[in-house]
Design a protein around this nucleic acid. Structure first.
Length: 396
DNA sequence: TCGCCTTGCACTTTTGAAAAGG
DNA sequence: ACCTTTTCAAAAGTGCAAGGCG
């Protein structure tokens, strides 16, 4: 138990750092705005839109909330199921300095990090062979798309409904991944007013190294399991005290133990389980805000515990270490010289097809997420890569 | 035999409609 | 009559464990 706590303390502190890192503001070179002055007619090879980067600077703030597991010492895993499984932690993004009156669509997809298949052996992920071919062309379009820049910038954008699957036959909105393969999410911002113009609209793409994960059908690393159980509200039933009670006592006793003595409790004979008869119960030992807050809040975030983002809600903060009480006031900024990335070959016509230049690990061991990578500066389409260790605060 | 995948389970939170209250 | 708050059932999201499959 002590070891678990130590692990989690470590995870929490690292995660805090990572979280801060994710709260990045990237300077984004794209064609959201045409140049009006200082026009540089020299074509930059990386500029897809035919405009000089210097003409097209836009800032892009990222707030990838609670990628708690994307820390250096632990490789994140995401469960994939036939029916689709949500990503946890969720992806949350804030954008700024878009054209307030122009419509944009925001998309997410997930692409392979490399051409390897992995295997978890002796507490480490190792390359076990060549990767299965990736099925491209599945994008999660944010349900609020299209929206004007001002609407996108109004509040952070949450990707909590994205689902990953290993079954191509299921819901076409699910992103298809292969188990035991390593992936990274990509964020696309397209200037478009509908799905048709999306195919031709100016586009910028961002990836974040810390969000790399390995798709699995069952968790391999116990540490990942513990982190998810402790932080995912839906997995609350597996947390230690409750789980022990689940084995040793009946449901009614378990729930009663969590309740103040004066709170009434009913027992549903049909369901053979107690049910709530006091809304305050929802906030007891819970990471969720009290019911009233939920009902009146502008955003009822279904899966991301609101305590993690005090910039969005003003809910009471949970001081428990297990609650991963993050502050989001810390912002880092993207370096003025953006990187251009190309992790994988993508034949999809709508999105780009950068040359494959990922410089993978030389050993069998997969690199830490903080390992510097080599990016192709001449990829056809710009992809800004957030770098935790190499930012220029003065730029913002 | 082994490693990975599927399925059902018990548990949880979320959601939204209906009921109750002001 | 209208709006707000509460209640409650259903839906959906979790990890676990057992069994299936190649």
């Amino acid at each position: 138990m002590l070891d678990d706590n130590n692990l989690f303390q470590r995870a929490a502190s690292s995660a805090y750092a990572s979280m801060a890192a994710f709260t990045a503001a990237a300077n984004m070179y794209n064609s959201f705005y045409p140049s009006t002055s200082n026009s540089n007619t020299t074509m930059d090879p990386v500029n897809y839109f035919g405009c000089s980067e210097k003409d097209l600077i836009r800032k892009f703030e990222l707030n990838l909330m609670i990628w708690i597991c994307g820390v250096d010492f632990i490789h994140n895993e995401m469960i994939i199921t036939k029916n689709g499984r949500r990503l946890f932690p969720n992806l949350r993004v804030s954008v700024s300095e878009l054209d307030p009156n122009t419509k944009y669509m925001i998309l997410l997809d997930i692409v392979p990090m490399d051409d390897n298949r992995y295997k978890y052996h002796e507490s480490a992920w190792n390359i076990s062979g060549k990767a299965e071919p990736h099925i491209y062309g599945r994008y999660y379009v944010h349900p609020d798309s299209p929206q004007t820049g001002s609407q996108w910038m109004k509040q952070s954008i949450l990707f909590n409904k994205v689902k990953i699957t290993n079954s191509p036959m299921q819901n076409p909105n699910h992103i298809i991944l292969n188990s035991m393969h390593r992936y990274i999410p990509r964020l696309h911002i397209v200037q478009a007013s509908d799905s048709y113009s999306m195919r031709t609209g100016p586009l910028s793409t961002f990836i974040f190294e810390e969000t790399v994960f390995i798709a699995v059908t069952a968790y391999q690393n116990d540490q990942i399991t513990k982190l998810k159980i402790n932080n995912n509200p839906f997995a609350k039933g597996f947390r230690e005290p409750t789980h022990v009670k689940k084995i040793n006592s009946k449901p009614l006793k378990r729930l009663q133990s969590c309740l103040p003595s004066d709170k009434p409790l009913k027992y549903d004979e049909n369901l053979h389980r107690p049910y709530k008869c006091d809304s305050s119960l929802l906030s007891i030992n819970s990471n969720s805000p009290p019911l009233q807050s939920t009902m009146h809040g502008a955003i009822a975030d279904s899966t991301t515990p609101t305590y993690l983002d005090n910039s969005v809600g003003d809910h009471e903060q949970d001081s428990d270490i297990n609650s991963m009480n993050f502050s989001t006031s810390y912002h880092q900024h993207f370096p003025s010289n953006s990187f251009y990335s190309s992790y994988a070959s993508d034949p999809t016509p709508m999105i780009y097809n950068p040359a494959y230049t990922y410089m993978g690990p030389t050993s069998n061991q997969i690199p830490s997420t903080s390992t510097p990578m080599h990016f192709n500066p001449y990829g056809r389409y710009p992809t800004s890569v957030y770098q935790t260790n190499n930012y220029n605060p003065s730029f913002f």
